[in-house]
Amino acid sequence: MDFIPLIRRYGYWLIRGFWKPRYIRPNALFEQMTHVGVLALPSVAMACMFMGIVLVMQGAYQLQQVGAIDYVADLVGVSMFREIGPLITAVIVIGRSASSITAELGTMKVSEEIDALEVMGVDPVRYLVMPRVAAMTIMMPCLTVIGECLGLFGGALISSFSLGMDPYYYGSRLLQAVFLRDLWSGLIKSLIFGFIVGILACYRGLNVEGGAEGVGRETTNSVVLCLKAMLATNCILTALFYFF
């Protein structure tokens, strides 16, 4: 299945789904949201918390040389909301969930389950792609919010223990430095990442050929493609948010 027809059919079923929610398959959507989102939470939480710790340590190393150690909370807050939170969350979800989606759909392709759906008159885009892409789009911002909170917590933890910074002081500097715009820009990035990663993972899965070897190859290709697409999109969106 080519990429443009896949996008077109996804858009068609999304619009139709607003008139007849039965087409969206709510049970499958919730199942995918659990698989893509809820089960990825521990990994996302841990990764973001560690990133928060690393940000403080790396930031403190430079900032104390210019006597600006107090700005470490500002650094963590703005970076985490605008960049690190969405980026790290997307990387974890790509490694975990996008690869799983590609492998699952690829296995279905090589065992003719996709063909079986088509012969039954069931559009594989509606039945398989829609719940997965929708779940990825919904859960990515949710995971990002939780990841960002834990990243800030990690930063507060290391600031308190290593730098001797009062946690209340850390929190008040955070509130002064971070604006709503920083939060929104990160969440919009997450939303777009979720859609792009979901659709690319499904696209690679539906085009697997060559048996088990093909599934393995395309799963790897899918992760690499999703990472590249996510990083390129991040670059474009960061520029857009910077200039506008």
């Binding site: 065992s111 003719e112 389950e113 079986a116 012969v119 039954m120 069931v122 559009d123």
Partner: peptide
Amino acid sequence: NESQLNLVRTKIGLLFQSGALFN
């Protein structure tokens, strides 16, 4: 097109060689 074909497919059934069951 795919929509027209799906209408025809509601009147046919196919047994695949391996069964092609949804695992």
